[in-house]
């Protein structure tokens, strides 16, 4: 079937987007940066992190779950949106316990990179300092709950060989946390652990025993601050 295109406008720039694409996808195709955290390559969108909020008319909507429509006029790079996104990033920081100086994902962390990009110094909200655990009983993977931002990337993107999900969520609201399928612990091979670490935007999933192998200077955001 032939792909049909529709015209949209982002910050005054006219773009031909593919029909069925999300705003984030269309922007990305044309080199327009809309920040994302829960969005990952070809995974279906989840809309959990909200940092991709854009403005359409009077409404603020998530760019990753909103499909483009004909003639859509989108605002992306405005002071209000920047402030809103910065606030969301700050909330993610205060909700968990993010100690960048000693986190091995530092320099590769998408949350840290966004905080730098949005000029976050001190969050405007009080730190919650929640009591969260480190789960380390698995041979190849360490789950650092203090750093999880509940983006669902691991749930959507890391599957066992037979296709079943390895990660899931338990509990609700502020207590929600990521967990793994305890009925099939062998599914978490060394290779899957590496994949999980790579897919996680922060340092919540850490492949064991390999910490800090990547030297400063070679990390993703050492090379390119926009990833």
């Amino acid at each position: 079937m032939e792909q049909s295109y529709i015209q949209i406008t982002i910050d005054g720039r006219e773009i031909m987007a593919k029909e069925g694409q999300s705003i984030v996808e269309a922007a990305r195709d044309h080199g327009v940066v809309i920040p994302t955290l829960c969005d990952f390559k070809s995974l279906p969108p989840a809309g959990t992190c909200r940092v991709c909020m854009v403005q359409i008319g009077g409404r603020i909507v998530p760019g990753c779950t909103t499909p483009v429509s004909f003639g859509m006029v989108i605002l992306n790079d405005t002071d209000d949106l920047r402030n809103l996104r910065k606030g969301l990033i700050e909330m993610l920081f205060v909700e968990g316990n993010h100690m960048c100086p000693t986190c091995e994902k530092s320099g590769n962390c998408e949350l840290q990179n966004l905080a730098y990009q949005y000029g976050m110094l001190v969050p405007r909200f009080p730190f919650l300092f929640p009591h969260r655990k480190i789960e380390s009983h698995l041979p190849h993977l360490l789950i650092e709950h203090n750093r999880c931002i509940q983006c669902l990337r691991c749930v959507r993107g890391v599957k066992a060989k037979d296709g079943h999900e390895i990660f899931g969520f338990i509990q609700r609201g502020i207590n929600i946390r990521v967990t793994i399928d305890s009925t099939d612990p062998d599914a978490l091979t060394e290779e899957t652990a590496q994949k999980a670490m790579d897919i996680c935007p922060v340092g919540a999933l850490i492949k064991k025993k390999t910490g800090f192998k990547l030297p400063i200077g070679k990390r993703r955001y050492d090379v390119n601050g926009n990833g």
Binding site: P101, E104, I134, K209, T210, G211, F212
Partner: peptide
């Protein structure tokens, strides 16, 4: 205490 061992060289230097 409670941190993974490979973090120690980076953590304790602080």
């Amino acid at each position: 205490q409670g941190r993974p061992y490979w973090e120690a060289p980076v953590l304790v230097q602080r």
